[in-house]
Design a protein around this nucleic acid. Structure first.
Lengths: 239, 239
DNA sequence: CCAAAAGTGTTGCTATTACACCCATGG
DNA sequence: CCATGGGTGTAATAGCAACACTTTTGG
């Protein structure tokens, strides 16, 4: 015995993001039991004896979300308020996850909600593909707070890391326009098209994150240069 | 019972920083029992049933470090590798703390070590006031990793938050030179004196973090304008 | 009077922004 | 042939870094 105190439960909670129709979106599940029954909340799981928090997140991704393959995740922060779960003392380690396509989550109990920045510090969640398209203003537990912090983190990191590329459906073949749409969806603000193509794409290239493929993409309007993400795991720190 | 799995121990570990003689320094304690007996490690404590992680950190500060009053702390991240403690399964939530003066810690079991950036990703720790002034290259548990991450965090945040002011011995009366010394100690690189006074101090003022007191500080050379920190709790996000 | 420490000004460079112009395609 | 989307150029501006010069004190 290292300490005489009762051990808390420890869980991981996952904030899985994607971009849907030009808007940042989060994947939620409706709670089917108390507490917070019938409210939406983040998917989560208890950490088992023989796994790390990262391991629990991986298991959560494959078991509850039925997502296979490599999914980008990073730790957000840990929430430990004594009464954050009304039943028992539960400490939760929150993780951010990013997937490029909402269709990758293919289980009926998970729903996508687009995130609209309304007032400062609060968001409107609007269900995607919902027959009802209802608006959700409040999540179970302290998941509202987690969401706020996670969005701040995403917005902060999009300028000096390579997380933007985790949203790409095809990271080996994409255009500046595609990347710009993601950028705008995450930050919630418009960025000049010409400048993005010239400077942002150029900076990515200078840092060895992407390269031009040489081929072009066809569609409406002038064909666009396509790029390929080659930037392994390393971060890109500006300057 | 919410889950059938054995609960892990949960602790907080504290990375308490200060600036000593123009160098970033960290407060460590020598371990008096296994594992890692006689090695240096971060001070830590188990989280009790009725307290949050923040509460445990406060208790750690007052009980083990005998620090009273308001100390700046922030969560770093959580470490959950299954075997990070060889005895039992222990998850640790690491916190960063900052105090302005090494003399505030006044217990014999805590020692200060200045941090010298040597190669990339590794640091040399050199004991302060040590009769021996020995060099420590390795800490117990995964505390080396925690230290690395914490230093990165400090260096990253010093440019766009107000943590620099937490190092000030007297936040109501300080000079640009004092602040510049802290800046250089934390980042480990020199910054031009004139520019710091002109631009950095000006930017702090424009963001309402500090104001000129009107009085001047005397000493060798031309008296310096003094400033006062007025920036409450809020962060300062550049631009 | 001189060294030390501090405030302030100048200059050039770089990054960012806004905007304009032209290009290549599909319908 | 024209709307649409994409590449590229230009000019103005803002920020940053290096450096020089001046100011005010203590010894």
């Amino acid at each position: 015995m290292l300490s005489e105190y009762k051990h808390p439960y420890v869980t991981v909670d996952l904030l899985l993001f994607s971009v849907i129709d030009g808007q940042l979106a989060i994947n939620l599940t409706v709670r089917d039991e108390e507490p917070f029954k019938d409210m939406y909340a983040l998917p989560g799981s208890f950490i088992r004896e023989n796994e790390s928090a990262e391991g629990a997140v991986e298991r959560l991704l494959s078991d509850k979300l039925e997502l296979s393959g490599q999914i980008y995740t990073e730790q957000l922060m840990t929430f430990s308020d004594v009464n954050r779960d009304p039943r028992e003392r539960v400490i939760s380690i929150a993780y951010i996850g990013i997937i490029p396509d909402k269709a990758m989550v293919n289980v009926p109990w998970m729903k996508w909600f687009t995130i609209q920045s309304s007032n400062v510090g609060s968001y409107k969640l609007c269900q995607v593909d919902g027959d009802e398209s209802f608006i959700c203003t409040c999540l179970g537990f302290d998941h509202d707070k987690m969401l706020e912090i996670a969005i701040d983190r995403l917005r902060g990191k999009i300028d000096y890391t390579d997380i933007i590329f985790k949203f790409l459906k095809d990271s080996k073949q994409f255009t500046a326009g595609t990347l710009r749409e993601i950028y705008q969806s995450v930050t919630g603000q418009e960025i000049n098209r010409g400048n993005f193509t010239k400077y942002q794409m150029n900076t990515y290239m200078e840092h060895g994150l992407i390269k031009k493929t040489g081929s072009i993409s066809i569609g409406r309007g002038r064909p666009a240069d396509t790029y390929s993400y080659i930037g392994g795991d390393r971060l890109w720190i500006k300057y």
